[in-house]
């Protein structure tokens, strides 16, 4: 029986929750889950896996795509060929997956977010989520897949009775790429276009005095504060925080719009955000047409409640 080889998504000693999607994926396909893990003390429930292969190498080397080919070669030597090699669709997962596929010149499908088990068909989104492509692998050997986070984690529910843990020495490490270190984001200029998470406030904020409360909320949530034009016009926040046609166009992962009714000009500047959450008193506010989630309520109350919850955590 072939197995699915999971290349663990780890970073800074953390075993990412995204790995659960990979486990879930294996479970659906009913293949044994093997996992490649580097040296380190990861908080991971090993009973998900049929086999855990502990590589005797540093995390940074493990995450170097130039090494993954040799590691997999060695794994195959030792445990036979897997049917699939799976990564999460994270920055390093994608990097390694594409390189690995090229290394073996095998097919690769990335960012899978669904599948049809019977047909062995994988779904992946194309054209910015507008359509899903249904893809089937025709090859005989193994393939490389990457899995979109959040797609299958609910299936990560099968524990293995026996988990075999193997230690494995790493292959010769590539010298052509080396990890130099993490970069702490210098907190100098705020660039709202680069932020992952924006809390944006609009005319509904009412008074200048209220701004501080939102700054505090943004700090608590590690979000960046932006605003719509009326707030900027009143000079309550600096110009570079303006979202909209005449300000900045942003595409964060989450755009939390508070007290913004959603003038066309504003919408144009944020509509491509991955997830838009709108808080507004007026259920008719146009912003709700663009938002993924909405809270109909007073923005200040929502702010204060959030702060309360966050501080309580």
């Amino acid at each position: 029986m072939s197995y699915g080889l999971i290349v663990a998504d780890v970073r800074k000693g953390t075993f990412d929750e995204r790995n659960l999607d990979l486990i879930g994926f294996c479970n659906i396909l009913e293949v044994d889950a093997y996992i490649l893990l580097p040296k380190g003390d990861y908080d991971v429930d090993l009973s998900y896996f049929k086999r855990v292969i502990r590589l005797n190498m540093e995390e940074a080397d493990f995450l170097n795509p130039l090494n993954i080919g040799a590691i997999v070669e060695k794994t195959i030597e030792k445990f036979g060929r897997p049917s699939i090699i799976i990564f999460s669709s994270s920055s390093s997962g994608m990097e390694m997956a594409s390189y690995l596929a090229g290394y073996f010149n095998v097919p690769i499908i990335t960012d899978i977010n669904g599948l049809s088990k019977e047909e062995k068909v994988f779904f992946k989104s194309c054209y910015s989520e507008k359509v899903y492509a249904h893809l089937r692998l025709k090859n005989e050997g193994f393939s490389v897949l990457t899995i979109r986070s959040g797609s299958f984690k609910q299936h990560a529910n099968k524990k293995c009775e026996v988990t075999e843990t193997e230690e494995m020495d790493p292959p010769t490490l590539s010298e052509k790429r080396s990890f130099l270190g993490y970069v702490e984001e210098e907190k100098q200029e705020i660039d709202i276009t680069k932020a992952n998470f924006l809390i944006s406030i609009g005319r509904g904020v009412g008074k200048k005095e209220e701004i501080a409360g939102y700054e505090e909320l943004a700090t608590l949530l590690k979000a960046t504060l932006s605003a719509s034009r009326p707030v900027i016009d009143k000079q309550w926040l600096p110009k570079e925080r303006q979202v909209g046609t005449s300000g900045k166009t942003v595409k964060p992962k989450v755009y939390l719009a508070m007290g913004i009714s959603g003038a066309f000009q504003h919408i144009a500047g944020m509509k491509d955000s991955e997830c838009i959450i709108a808080v507004n008193k007026d259920p008719e506010a146009p912003i709700f047409q663009y938002a993924h989630y909405g809270i109909i309520g007073d923005m200040h109350k929502v702010r204060d409640k959030l702060k309360e919850l966050l501080k309580g955590l």
Binding site: I232, D233, Q235, K239, Q242, T245, S246, G247, Q265
Partner: peptide
């Protein structure tokens, strides 16, 4: 083009 470009200084807008 001012509809698409906001100048860097802040001042009282004509519309206001």
């Amino acid at each position: 083009g001012r509809m698409f470009y906001e100048v860097e200084v802040q001042y009282e807008r004509n519309a206001k």
